[in-house]
């Protein structure tokens, strides 16, 4: 089951790192980084059903996962 309740241990710091990791990159390089990041996190999660819920939630954030 996809966790949608708050789960980040240090939300502000983590978000800051997400933005900072793109410093100095062109837009194309940033898109490539994001794509790699998605793949790395997908592998960490692993479970197909959880990922499917996450993908659908990303497409339509107003619809809570089943």
């Amino acid at each position: 089951m996809l966790i949608t309740a708050p789960n980040l241990t240090r939300p502000d710091e983590t978000y800051e790192r997400l933005i900072a990791i793109h410093d100095g990159l062109t837009e194309a390089e940033s898109h490539a980084l994001n794509a790699r990041l998605v793949l790395i996190l997908m592998n960490h999660i692993g479970d197909h059903q959880v990922l499917d819920q996450a993908l659908r939630l990303a497409r339509d954030p107003s619809r809570a996962p089943d």
């Binding site: 898109h31 490539a32 794509a35 790699r36 998605v38 793949l39 790395i40």
Partner: peptide, 13 residues
């Protein structure tokens, strides 16, 4: 974009 991200990662991971 995703395909090439997979290929880049595949060299190392």
């Amino acid at each position: 974009l995703f395909r090439n991200a997979v290929l880049t990662l595949a060299e190392h991971l």
